[in-house]
Nucleic acid binder design. Sequence first.
DNA 1: CGACACCTTGAAGAGGTTCAAGAAATGTGG
DNA 2: CCACATTTCTTGAACCTCTTCAAGGTGTCG
Lengths: 239, 239
Amino acid sequence: MKAEVFKVACSSCNLRELCMPVGFDQKDMHKLDEIVTVRKKIKQGDLLFENGEIFTSLYAIRTGFFKTSVASEDGREQVTGFQMAGEIIGLDGIVNDRHTCNALALEDAEVCVMPFDHIEDLSREFPVLQKHVHKIMSREIVREHGMMMLLGNMSAEERLANFLVNLVQRLFARGQSQSEFILRMSREEIGSYLGLKLETVSRTFSKYSEEGIIEVKQKHIKILKPDSLKQLVKLPNCN
Amino acid sequence: MKAEVFKVACSSCNLRELCMPVGFDQKDMHKLDEIVTVRKKIKQGDLLFENGEIFTSLYAIRTGFFKTSVASEDGREQVTGFQMAGEIIGLDGIVNDRHTCNALALEDAEVCVMPFDHIEDLSREFPVLQKHVHKIMSREIVREHGMMMLLGNMSAEERLANFLVNLVQRLFARGQSQSEFILRMSREEIGSYLGLKLETVSRTFSKYSEEGIIEVKQKHIKILKPDSLKQLVKLPNCN
DNA sequence: CGACACCTTGAAGAGGTTCAAGAAATGTGG
DNA sequence: CCACATTTCTTGAACCTCTTCAAGGTGTCG
């Protein structure tokens, strides 16, 4: 639960293109730095924020991997997303000034803390930042539309294919391999995200494996036939 | 597809509290009126906007009832929401300057057209409006989290109960009965929204009816035991 | 009034879940 | 660093919920 704290600059961050707007000129760049007050380290298994907690800030992930989830009254968990470097979390908290989901670090992580009051002040000053904030929120809405399609209409095989293709695309955009990666989450967490039980996730992995589409060694996944996977993905823009 | 056009003022609209921020003083109120350029009438069965269309505006529903939906590559439809008076649609278009879903009028409707450039300009001038826009988007994100929970974890009975309770709550907030209402959508559309087939929706209605929980006469629903329904609803804030 | 869309209901079937057991990996403490 | 406990993963078999297919009924609208 403890979190160490740092001071750093966006203007020199190599993730800037992922989480910040482009189109800032050099002189405004320092202003951008004001968005991030501090950085915060989160240990694997710790919560960045949780349901019910007062909302103050959005968080830009610098390193590490998170899952966000909501819980029903009777304790069922629904994973609402997996987030990695350059992605923004905390948007759920804006509407009621309290977070409505939990954000848990699946590996040791570091985030940039961006007080939302501050974001709002700066967005009024810089239209390009304002636009960026709007786009981030809209992107999340569109992503969730895709998830509704997946959960409402897709078979287990399609769901898992979609999950893998999406994951590998995002990792690839961050400079990692297009064919090999390590799953940061358990079968159960994948299942919760996809509306499946962990056994079904496991069986579907095995099926893909038998068909030579992927190679599965626990959490290590290698994609052997990317086209076969993509053929199963019938979602629109579920990024 | 044709749409008639009107000019009107937000400041005198009785739906203002639903779709616009409170906290504007009298003098700024005319500024608020500038948000809505025109009104537009949509006939039942017509599209307000559709997937791929250039995004220019958000729409505040004045009268009528809409469904929004996305389609997969192979033509499956997923209803992403049903919207009524005072609710805002079009947020999906912000991220890529194109709409990614279809918005279809389930009954004759009238909407206020709010060019988004305009909203952005005015939000920079009026923090209360800026905050409002952020909250609307965040609310939609939170609603969709609830839908993911519903689609990923709930039984058919729980899904339909949730749907009915949610619908009646929103209608009640708009001055309608707490126990009786008319469904504006077909069984198939309800099913698409809830990730069920129309037969399952119909059967579940029949089951509730046999148990004396509701009375079903085609699209006319009367809730007889609201507590029994609410007992089935285990979602957090799925408004 | 007739055509058409929508809804209901039954029966059979499929996909995913549940329950259970064992295997593999991971973590812990001596 | 190894032994043991624990967690995670895999796989099988039975089961269950929802779907599919089919037929008939009901309501609606030109």
